[in-house]
């Protein structure tokens, strides 16, 4: 718990923010390409964020501000805990449950400030976001539970380390195919990408919770969004797609995974929120349970190759 840990933490924070914003920038070009247009410069995302931060904005009371600060604080704390290719700011603090539950602090902060803004659109957005979370989280948690049971460890970096050595065959997504599929679909839900983005639907509920945000609050929301994407993608990357042996490999895999998700989500329609819940509780849940039973009872996928 020395000062160095905090410095490393800040470095990870900065790196994560810069890395993810550039990836988002590229992906905005990719999305544009899909929609037959060129799309903005790769660093457009940075410009938007810093412009928002410079503008003055309105506030609806102390809870409106406190919520946003708490949200960003929580997300930053979670990012610090994320192990990137074997490098951790705070050693063996990267427990899966700590990360997934710290994420909830961010969500709660955002929800609180949205509800505090007094706008009904925001509250509807929050209620949809929470229902959406209930939808995608259960199958994902079951699969993660199976991982923990299989590898007898709950720390993300150790699971990532166990998948090294065999190249692509070592990935959990390959060893536990059903689990991999479920994780990939859950990633869409987590990121709030197209099929499951009814809680920030711009047309329906005026982009949900973010309706009252402007100026620096909007800037906070952008940073928050970037960091959450980083956490979620790197979590799935570490757990299911082998995490990077070195930072470069990690970055490439990360970019490919994120762009893949983005491309797929561009062509998807939007689920109503209860359709999303029904969707997640049919196929993905069954896959997760089958995968769980297979791993627990038959023990396949744990040491199938060696």
């Amino acid at each position: 718990m020395t000062v160095m840990n905090f410095v490393y933490g800040f470095i990870i924070l900065l790196a994560a923010f810069i890395f993810q914003t550039t990836i988002t920038g590229f992906n905005r070009k990719v999305t544009a390409r899909i929609q037959k247009r060129y799309g903005p410069r790769w660093y457009q995302q940075f410009l938007d964020i810093f412009k928002a931060l410079r503008k003055s904005s309105i506030t609806h009371g102390w809870i409106f501000d406190f919520g946003v600060i708490m949200a960003l604080g929580g997300i930053m704390a979670t990012v610090i805990f994320i192990p990137v290719a074997g490098f951790e700011a705070f050693p063996n603090m990267d427990n899966v449950y700590i990360i997934s539950y710290l994420l909830a602090i961010g969500m709660l902060g955002m929800a609180m400030s949205a509800a505090g803004s007094g706008n009904p659109w925001a509250s509807i957005g929050v209620s949809r976001a929470l229902t959406n979370m209930l939808a995608y989280d259960i199958p994902l948690m079951i699969v993660i539970f199976t991982l923990i049971f299989a590898f007898d460890t709950a720390s993300v970096s150790e699971i990532a380390a166990m998948q090294q050595g065999m190249g692509i065959l070592g990935w959990n997504a390959i060893r536990m195919p059903l689990g991999g599929i479920v994780a990939f679909i859950a990633l869409f839900g987590m990121l709030g990408k197209k099929p499951f983005d009814s809680f920030i639907a711009p047309a329906e509920i005026a982009s949900g919770p973010m309706v009252e945000y402007g100026g620096k609050h909007l800037g906070f929301m952008f940073i928050l969004h970037e960091l959450m994407t980083f956490i979620e993608v790197s979590l799935i990357l570490n757990l299911f797609f082998g995490g990077g042996s070195s930072i470069l490999v990690y970055a490439i895999k990360y970019a490919i995974l994120y762009t893949l998700v983005n491309i797929i989500s561009q062509v998807m329609p939007r689920y109503k929120i209860d359709q999303a819940v029904k969707f997640f509780y049919r196929v993905p849940l069954v896959f997760a349970i089958i995968q769980g039973l297979v791993v627990i009872f038959l023990g396949w996928g744990v040491s199938v190759w060696f």
Binding site: L53, T59, I69, I80, I105
Partner: peptide, 22 residues
Amino acid sequence: VFGYGFLIALVIFILRRKSRRV
């Protein structure tokens, strides 16, 4: 660590311009 994150966010928030109460 959560406090640390909260501190960073607070610093950013205070550095920026004050927002109008509505």
